[in-house]
Simulated assay, not measured.
Amino acid sequence: MTSGSTTDASPWFVRPPSTGHPARIFCFPFAGSGASAYSDWPAVLGDIEVCPVQFPGRENRLAEPHYGTYENLVTGLAEVLAPLLDRPFAFFGHCAGALPAYETALRLAELGLPGPDRLFVSGQPAPHDASCDRMLTMTESELRAEIEWFLRGRRIEPRPDMVDLGLTVLLRDQAAARAYRRPEPVAVPCPVVVVHWRDDPDVSLAELEGWRWYADSVGIRVVEGGRYDVMNAPDELRTLLTRWR
């Protein structure tokens, strides 16, 4: 066990959560990505430790089987999170990552475990509208072009082998997203904060209104930038993510 850590190194986290901060925010990656989506974020926001979650079947967990379904993903993650819920915490999920973040909050409640103080969902329609995601209707060639566009936007030359690997992960994530069903809203026992990226061409502000059915307290906040600007942890987002403290 490393100094100040609460647990032995786990494949679910790129770094062991520490005991040195009074609160944590667990960050769920978007489809096709992994914990590295948050590599440019600071390790701490105010007094809140940033804990990116690493899903199976990507990056340093590429050799592991893909989680297959959100149910499998949440079951495994809830077990790992249980000893880390000893202080206030929040969940942040971006795009499709908002769905397992939401489902994990529900699972913790079902297990009688402490739940998040806030659920932040970013750029993702509510679970009962999840099938409207534009990317779920894209062909493989369209998804490949999307990956190439994304990499160039990160100033990375999209080598064919890199694109092939990204496409493999994305297709498996997309299959899990297509299999996901939540026909009726089920509320979580914590406030929900919905983040809309003003320049997001795929998800409108109106399409996020469905989240209002998912908690007694739901706030929608508009921040500047496009959907992938989340990776840069802009100041406006950082401020929003620390207000629950």
Rank of each mutant, 00 (worst) to 15 (best):
Q174M: 14
R107M: 08
L62S: 11
Y214V: 09
V50P: 06
L208T: 08
G68K: 11
D86W: 04
I220C: 08
A175H: 15
H21G: 01
P29M: 08
V193P: 00
W213V: 04
L108A: 00
L81S: 08
R61M: 04
D40C: 07
G20H: 11
P160W: 05
C95T: 09
V188Y: 01
G46P: 12
E148R: 12
A37P: 02
D164P: 04
G57R: 07
D117M: 06
A35N: 00
L241H: 09
L73Y: 04
A233I: 05
D8C: 02
S217L: 11
A105M: 06
R245A: 10
V188P: 01
A187N: 05
F150G: 06
V188L: 01
G123T: 12
L241S: 12
P22M: 01
V53D: 07
G219W: 00
A215I: 03
P83W: 10
G166I: 00
T69L: 03
Y180V: 05
P22K: 11
W213M: 09
E148Q: 14
R182G: 02
V193Y: 00
L106V: 11
P56W: 05
T75E: 14
P83K: 11
E157R: 08
P52H: 12
P100Y: 00
F30P: 02
Y102I: 08
R212W: 01
W213H: 15
P160K: 07
A175V: 11
V194D: 05
V223F: 07
A96M: 10
T168I: 09
V121S: 04
W149F: 06
H66P: 03
A35T: 02
R152S: 03
V218W: 05
N72F: 02
R118N: 08
C27L: 14
M135R: 15
H196F: 05
A101M: 04
T239C: 10
S3D: 13
R154G: 00
R58V: 01
E209M: 03
T137I: 00
A175Q: 15
G210C: 12
E71K: 03
M138W: 13
E148V: 08
V192Q: 09
D199M: 07
A31M: 06
G57W: 01
D8V: 09
L62P: 00
D229N: 15
R118S: 04
P114Q: 01
R107F: 00
D202F: 15
V203D: 05
W213Y: 13
V169L: 11
Y38H: 13
P125H: 03
V194L: 10
G46L: 02
E140R: 14
E103V: 00
L62E: 06
A126K: 13
Y102P: 04
P22G: 07
R134Q: 13
T239L: 14
P52F: 03
E110H: 12
L205D: 14
V44P: 04
V163L: 11
R107S: 07
L81T: 05
E71T: 13
M135H: 04
